[in-house]
């Protein structure tokens, strides 16, 4: 059992849980994830490790409550426990050791970008983070990223930072030059847009993919993605890949596989239907 030691609401639908998992806290590296199962009968949910405190033995899970499973997870309180946490899974991020890195985070993906920015900063890489949200209340991890370098905050409505999408600020930074590598994590359209922006500048772009996953150890093959015309398993070959080679259409498409099920389950969880008793 993995006790929750701290809980913080980061934005209207994003919650941070600091969960006891000492071995994972000790060895996890940026880019790696865990698979979490709240309790008996619950689904297995892959979550990127946003931070870790080896001394306290905790890992930080940043969860966007979108479906029944994630909503039930964020309904847990300090002192409650998560039944299963397996990991750390996936390959660590490929980090450059000198130069300047652009870290682009959209929505909950900003939490995934954070450990990457932190590790780059520790290596002496100059980090510029571009993060965004709908409005001020949706912006997360700004303070943590500010420790790693410059942060440019973008909001769709201009309620905080500059008005516009993260792609606008990204384009300007690319045009100004001097970027050696880009890391982009967020919704599929955002990652695709960033990869399309960096391509003409020949800036290597790492994206972290979030396909449907079951076991997370390569056994099921559900998380297959197309990278450069080859089928890869995100859980064991990734989750990070060269953004210029990823077939984002396929990824977005496969993410729709269980949409109908999810909508039905969510409706039931909201008490709007009786199909599932």
């Amino acid at each position: 059992m993995h006790t929750i030691l701290a809980k913080n609401q980061l934005s209207p639908n994003v919650t941070r849980l600091d969960v006891l998992a000492p071995r994972i806290a000790e060895i996890k590296q940026p880019g790696q994830f865990v698979i979490v199962r709240r309790g008996e009968g619950d689904e297995r949910i892959p979550l990127t490790i946003a931070d870790a405190d080896p001394a306290q033995g905790t890992i930080a899970l940043v969860i966007q409550a979108v479906g029944k499973g994630t909503r039930e997870l964020v309904a847990l309180n300090v002192g409650d426990a998560i039944r299963d946490v397996a990991g750390p899974l996936g390959h660590p991020t490929e980090l450059i050791s000198a130069g300047r890195a652009l870290c682009v985070g959209g929505g909950v993906g900003t939490a995934v970008v954070h450990p990457i920015a932190k590790a780059l900063h520790a290596r002496g890489v100059q980090v510029t983070s571009v993060i965004g949200g709908r409005s001020k209340e949706w912006v997360i991890f700004e303070e943590e990223l500010a420790i790693c370098g410059e942060v440019i905050v973008c909001t769709d409505d201009g309620s905080y930072g500059r008005k516009g999408f993260v792609t606008d600020a990204t384009r300007e930074l690319l045009e100004a030059g001097g970027i050696d590598i880009a890391y982009a994590v967020g919704p599929v359209p955002m990652m695709r847009a960033v990869a399309n922006l960096t391509r003409p500048f020949n800036v290597h772009t790492v994206v972290s993919l979030n396909p449907v996953m079951v076991d997370g150890t390569g056994m099921c093959g559900g998380c297959r993605v197309d990278v450069g015309g080859e089928t890869k398993f995100a859980c064991v070959d990734g989750p990070e890949f060269d953004g210029h080679l990823v077939d984002f259409d396929l990824l977005a498409d496969r993410l729709q596989t269980y949409r109908e099920f999810e909508q039905r389950v969510n409706a039931c969880a909201d008490g709007q239907c009786n199909i599932r008793k």
């Binding site: 060895i27 946490v85 397996a86 750390p88 150890t217």
Partner: peptide
């Protein structure tokens, strides 16, 4: 011990 992935956890 469940949830221990040898090759990753150890």
């Amino acid at each position: 011990e469940c949830n221990v992935v040898i090759g990753r956890t150890y």
